[in-house]
Simulated scan of single mutants.
Amino acid sequence: MTDDARPLLIVVSGMSGSGKSVALNTLEDLDFYCTDNLPAELLPQFVRSVASDERGRRRLAVGIDVRNRTPDLARIPEWLSEVGELGFDHKLVYFDTRDEVLLKRYSDTRRKHPLSHDGLPLADAIRLERERMRPLQSIADLVMDTSELNVHQMRRQVITELGIGAHRGMSVLFESFAYKRGVPADADFVFDARALPNPHWNARLRPLSGRDPAVREHLDQDPVVQAFADQVTAFLGTWIPRFDAETRSYLTIAFGCTGGRHRSVYLAEHLAAHFRMLRPEGIFTYHRELE
């Protein structure tokens, strides 16, 4: 998208567990201003407010899903029409996944389905969600089936299918995870951060994550953590260009710790920031236990 193009709003919707969070994080990495779980009725107001601030943002993304009231979902075409009148192009992207894959993903992550509070078994909650979301799927500009995709492939597909931020060369994903839930199957390099000092034992930092400034500052000041980060940075600085030269499509670098909230998240963000300074395009982050 060039500076002369019309501003763009992407509405990310679809089944819970199908990759909507991955899509929003990818768009955020591509300099979209993103928000999740926006009440659908506020779409025009959100666009008007963000577009008129001092930064004049022209690329926006909003996550809207079954957490909205069903009557509001039915009125989304009306509100998207208002967004168009504000001068924005808009796309509704719907993420879908087969039911058996959704069941496995929820089992693997142990997360609650948004409709599970109604006392429904998971399979029934998925069936009800599919029914409520059918009107949005029917008007989507793009439907993406993520049943056979891993996280990195989802990100790649968001970039290529939407035609935004596309770049030549290898994509590098810095991922964090908790060892207690297993090592990511698609990781090319895995670094174990469990030997590093753990902010979990600091009562002030425990509720936070490695993305929060207080945790970053705490770990920035720890010489053991910095020695670890510097050594990994030097290693990857040698090998990422060599993998890139082999015309690979993507590389996944995973950092693990006990809970997947502090040390691993910090390191993934820290290394991603470093390599973005060297190659601004194609560097992504994903925090499995936070998303």
Rank of each mutant, 00 (worst) to 15 (best):
R6V: 09
P7C: 12
L8R: 01
I10M: 00
S13T: 15
S13W: 05
S13I: 07
G14F: 01
M15W: 01
G17N: 10
S18C: 08
N25G: 12
T26W: 02
L30V: 14
D31G: 12
Y33F: 15
C34I: 12
C34G: 10
N37T: 14
E41K: 10
L42H: 04
L43N: 10
L43Y: 09
Q45P: 04
F46D: 06
S49C: 12
S49A: 12
S49F: 13
A51D: 02
E54W: 03
R57T: 13
R57P: 04
R59P: 04
L60K: 05
G63H: 01
V66S: 04
N68Q: 11
P71A: 11
D72T: 09
E78N: 12
E78I: 09
L80I: 10
G84T: 08
E85C: 04
L86F: 09
F88P: 05
F88L: 14
D96F: 11
T97N: 08
R98V: 15
R98Y: 14
R98I: 15
V101Y: 03
V101L: 07
L102Q: 00
L103E: 07
L103K: 08
Y106T: 13
S107I: 09
T109H: 05
R110G: 00
H113S: 02
P114Q: 05
L115F: 09
L115Q: 06
H117M: 09
H117F: 14
H117W: 12
L120K: 04
L122Y: 06
A123C: 08
